[in-house]
């Protein structure tokens, strides 16, 4: 499972569409599962799926079951097999009688789960998920997340996921790619991205006695100094020696070392628009 991050308008959806073969690349070459996507070869299309949080493929006036039958026919899945897969997936998604109620009468969360079922009926090997939890409440988000994790574990399918909710990414994606201003800024583990975005650790001190600002000059970047409260940013490589020096020089009442939260870091990156 790969998380795909980028600011609004960075080109996440465009990239997904190119990987699906909906948009032709203006330069270069795309290969997905050994196919050139833009040819939209049936063998390729049978192996992928696209779920978009903002668009739906289910027929609005009919129960999801009817859309599922259409999809089964389109993908050439025999009725017996389709029934079995629908049962399995609806168990995982906790969908029951919702499948036989018109889509327009379903809640957003139920609709999204039915969309996922429709998108996975042909057992694709590569899943492109564009904001699959958009607009869902926290509970529904968690259930969709849980389902995706289960599905990935069971089938070993490749999943490329974009989301505005960092919780989706941190819960699901061991690997993260971040595009920024048309460049691939990061491809790797999420915590490595965090250390690249914020190379310093945050150290918070509470001293017994107030100390002057100059006393911290050699230790790190001083963010805040208020009476006995001190906030410092410290190079991780020097962290242990800095902490030793602090403990040797000052009488410390309390001490905390923190990583800045990843969503805050990425949020700042997108807001500032530069690094």
């Amino acid at each position: 499972m790969v998380g795909f991050l980028g600011a609004n308008g960075a080109g996440k959806t465009t990239t997904l569409k190119m990987l699906c073969g909906l948009i032709h690349p203006s330069a270069g070459e795309v290969l997905v599962a050994g196919h050139r996507p833009q040819r939209r070869h049936p063998d390729f299309l049978r192996r992928i799926t696209l779920v978009m949080g903002q668009k739906q493929q289910l027929i609005w006036d009919l129960p999801p079951m009817d859309s599922l039958r259409v999809n089964a026919a389109v993908y050439g899945i025999p009725d017996r097999v389709a029934r079995r897969r629908i049962n399995e997936l609806s168990d995982l998604l906790e969908l029951g009688e919702e499948l036989t109620r018109p889509v327009r009468k379903l809640s957003l969360g139920q609709r999204m789960k039915a969309e996922l079922l429709a998108a996975l009926l042909h057992e694709p090997e590569v899943l492109f998920l564009d904001e699959p939890t958009l607009g869902l409440d926290v509970n529904a988000q968690m259930r969709v997340r849980q389902f995706l994790a289960d599905y990935n574990r069971r089938t070993g399918a490749t999943v490329l996921l974009t989301s505005h909710y960092m919780a989706d990414i941190t819960a699901l994606c061991p690997r993260v790619m971040l595009i920024h201003q048309g460049q691939l800024f990061h491809d790797g583990a999420l915590d490595r991205l965090a250390s690249r975005l914020a190379p310093e650790r945050h150290v918070r001190l509470e001293l017994e006695q107030p100390a002057p600002a100059e006393a911290f000059a050699a230790l790190g970047q001083l963010d805040r100094l208020e009476n006995c409260e001190v906030n410092l940013r410290v190079d991780p490589a020097l962290l242990t020696s800095v902490l030793a020096q602090i403990l040797a020089r000052f009488e410390v009442r309390d001490l905390e070392v923190n990583d800045p939260p990843i969503d805050q870091l990425i949020g700042e990156l997108f807001r500032q628009g530069s690094l």
Binding site: K17, C20, G21, L22, R40, P42, D43, L45, R46, I48, T49, L50, M52, K55, Q56, Q57, N71, V74, Y75, G76
Partner: peptide, 13 residues
């Protein structure tokens, strides 16, 4: 207009 042609184009039909 609504972009649902995407779903049609991604079907193996």
């Amino acid at each position: 207009r609504e972009g649902t042609l995407d779903f049609v184009l991604l079907k193996p039909i």
